[in-house]
């Protein structure tokens, strides 16, 4: 028996919208830790890791140890679009061997209750082990600013060079029509903490990434006012959006390398 009640149902809607362009189908794992997912895009360039901790749910029951539920994200998105933004979402499933999951949507006033049953699928998921890493640079900045930069640069070029120095974090691209550079300096003298840009740098780092993926990651912007970008010269970048009181969604992207 699995039963998860999420008062802030809009969080789940936003999470799925941020994933569905990169992943077609994925196993959601339910364990005592929480509701989680790890999935790679089909070309094995980007990986998404989601955790919604069990204590972030109003009610969390998962009796079956680790219980994977394979879902087609396009179908899940269709169903979650039927939930109102203020609805409470409850996810129910009988457990391993059962091939359906039920989503129940309750309006805040309890006047309307809907349930949608969705077929589960068997998915051979490939799970990558990601060790804890020491990063050369960790930058926290407003998520809307990061999204704006990725969108702006993708009208000029296909790749972005992200460089962190003492001066700040620089995003550069070049294309047929010209070049673009955007530098964000550390800025902690802001009225609201979420507007700050904070740079922790052990050593300068510069890496090149496909902008198409970065732009997809920014679909998670509605989940958090800030984004954390962690870079090391010999590792994929980690772009993390914290999900208030509940967990995170992390996007890992392999760099472009010199041939």
């Amino acid at each position: 028996m699995l039963e998860l009640r999420l008062v802030q149902g809009s969080l789940l809607k936003k999470v799925i919208e941020s994933l569905k362009d990169l992943v077609n189908d994925a196993n959601f794992d339910c364990s005592s830790t929480g509701f989680s997912l790890q999935a790679m895009d089909s070309s094995h360039v980007a990986l998404m890791s989601l955790l919604l901790r069990s204590d972030g749910f109003e009610h969390y029951r998962c009796d079956h140890g680790n219980f994977p539920m394979g879902m087609k994200l396009e179908n899940l998105s269709k169903i979650l679009k039927c939930a109102g933004n203020d609805d409470i979402i409850t996810i129910k499933a009988d457990g391993p061997g059962n091939d359906t999951v039920t989503f129940m949507f309750e309006s805040p006033s309890q006047e309307k209750i809907a349930d949608y049953e969705m077929k589960l699928m068997d998915i051979d998921s490939e799970h990558l082990g990601i060790p804890e890493a020491e990063f050369h640079a960790i930058v926290r900045m407003p998520s809307s600013e990061f999204a704006r930069i990725c969108k702006d640069l993708s009208s000029i070029g296909d790749t972005v060079v992200i460089s962190v120095t003492k001066e700040g974090i620089k995003f550069s691209t070049k294309g047929d029509i010209g070049t673009a550079n955007v530098v964000c300096r550390q800025n902690t003298t802001v009225d609201k903490p979420e507007d700050a840009t904070i740079i922790e740098m052990q050593q300068p780092v510069s890496l090149t990434f496909a902008l198409r993926y970065m732009n997809s990651f920014t679909k998670a912007t509605p989940l958090s006012n800030t984004v954390t970008i962690s870079l090391s010269s010999d590792l994929p970048v980690v772009v993390e959006y914290k999900i208030a009181e509940m967990g995170y969604i992390r996007f890992y992207l392999a760099p472009k390398i010199e041939e």
């Binding site: 070309s43 094995h44 980007a46 990986l47 990558l128 082990g129 990601i130 790749t159 392999a254 010199e258």
Partner: peptide, 14 residues
């Protein structure tokens, strides 16, 4: 020219 690296070259399958 740049080549897109794969995640498989950084992380191991479990």
């Amino acid at each position: 020219p740049e080549m897109q690296a794969s995640l498989n070259s950084f992380y191991l399958f479990l």
